[in-house]
Design a binder for these strands. Structure first.
Length: 357
DNA sequence: CCAATTTGACCTAA
DNA sequence: TTAGGTCAAATTGG
């Protein structure tokens, strides 16, 4: 099926190729021009060189992790850089698979953006409850994780049903540092749930009691503002990751991310275009190379409350979430599925020749 | 009484 | 088969 390139990669490659081809055409046209042909030609040559370099880099980093199962054909069809991938992360492959499936027939899978947020709780302050991220979560499970000292708890957005918001998060307390919580978010909130609407904090003892309710929402109202600010900023960066998520036509008028988006817009209008082109994943390559680079370090004043907040995007970690059999009775899910292709399609440069294998 | 949490069972990908 | 993730009945709390 796949040729070893994630669809983001394919998109980038296609764009590059297209740009290169256009530059070539330009060069041909300009070659006979009287006005400073040399300069023009040189510029065009440089443009072409840039494209080639970019393609080379891409090619080098490769269609990741391609197992040669299915006789990978590798490379982008019709592209000069059809090369089989070097070994790499298979997340890309995953993503590709998903993409493929989505393209195929919108299988019951959903790609959700995923990112990790590390929150340190300052025990001295008595803020056991780790942070409040401004959303209302409902715990739906807890699991002992192999090799982990503390269980992992699972939360979903309180408004999953009412607002069809499929954001979830997992909270895992760090083995070494009990004050550190790793929170993995999945999916974007589509609920119109503003930060300030968060319900009141629950009692501290309760949290104590259940050692890992850390995430139990909203313990610390005071810190909320700061945190949410941070969060929003963080999210901003994240937005690119889940552009697709946010893009879907059927999404509810969500104030929360409407706001975030507006905040974002300033920071990455151009990038937004870009990411739209790329299907909303500008990050993968960078983060692939150096995940650390995506860390976010909280500024000092935040530290006073939380000790520190780090955020990490699991770049290639577009997550596959399998449809639950038991959820089939949920009409929401159906809608959701039907969304998948729609989410992607608009961003996908179908016009690019030879894109699909 | 309603809503959130707990917790063992169930499901699924690897 | 196993580990991780989710469901859902029972329980708890407001």
């Amino acid at each position: 099926m796949e040729n070893g390139w994630s669809w983001e990669q394919k998109t980038v490659i296609s764009e590059l190729i297209q740009g290169m081809e256009l530059a070539k055409q330009l060069r041909v046209q300009f070659s006979g021009t009287s006005s400073s042909p040399e300069t023009t030609d040189m510029l065009l040559q440089r443009i072409l060189n840039s494209y080639e370099k970019a393609l080379l880099i891409l090619r080098w980093s490769g269609p990741v992790g391609q197992s040669h199962t299915m006789g990978v054909t590798g490379g982008v069809p019709g592209s000069p850089i059809s090369v089989n991938g070097s070994p790499g992360s298979d997340e890309f492959e995953k993503g590709l698979k998903d993409q493929q499936e989505l393209n195929d027939a919108s299988k019951k899978r959903k790609i959700l953006p995923r990112w990790t947020d590390q929150v340190r709780v300052n025990s001295e302050t008595g803020l056991e409850g780790p942070h409040d991220d401004g959303y209302s979560w409902r715990k739906y499970g807890q699991k002992d994780i192999l090799g982990a000292k503390y269980p992992r708890s699972y939360y979903r957005c309180t408004f999953r049903i009412t607002q069809n918001c499929w954001a979830t998060k997992q909270v895992q307390r760090s083995d070494e540092d009990p004050n550190l919580f790793e929170i993995t978010y999945r999916g974007r909130h589509t609920c119109s749930h503003a930060t300030n609407l968060v319900p009141a904090p629950s009692s501290p003892e309760k949290q104590e009691q259940k050692h890992n309710n850390n995430n139990n929402d909203n313990q610390q109202k005071q810190s909320l503002d700061i945190l949410s600010t941070i969060r929003n900023n963080l999210r901003v960066a994240t937005e690119n990751l889940d552009n697709r998520e946010m893009a879907h036509p059927f999404s509810f008028p969500s104030t929360s991310f409407g706001c975030m988006k507006s905040e974002n817009s300033h920071f990455s209008l151009s990038e937004l275009d870009n990411s739209t082109l790329l299907g909303g994943f500008p990050q993968p390559f960078l983060s692939h190379a150096s995940p650390e680079s995506n860390y976010f370090t909280a500024s000092p004043f935040q530290v006073s409350n939380f000790g520190g907040v780090h955020m990490q995007f699991s770049n290639s970690e577009s997550e596959i979430i399998s449809a639950h059999t038991s959820t089939t009775n949920s009409p929401i899910l159906d809608i959701d599925f039907s969304l998948d292709p729609v989410e992607i399609d608009p961003n996908f440069p179908f016009d690019t020749p030879g894109f699909f294998s």
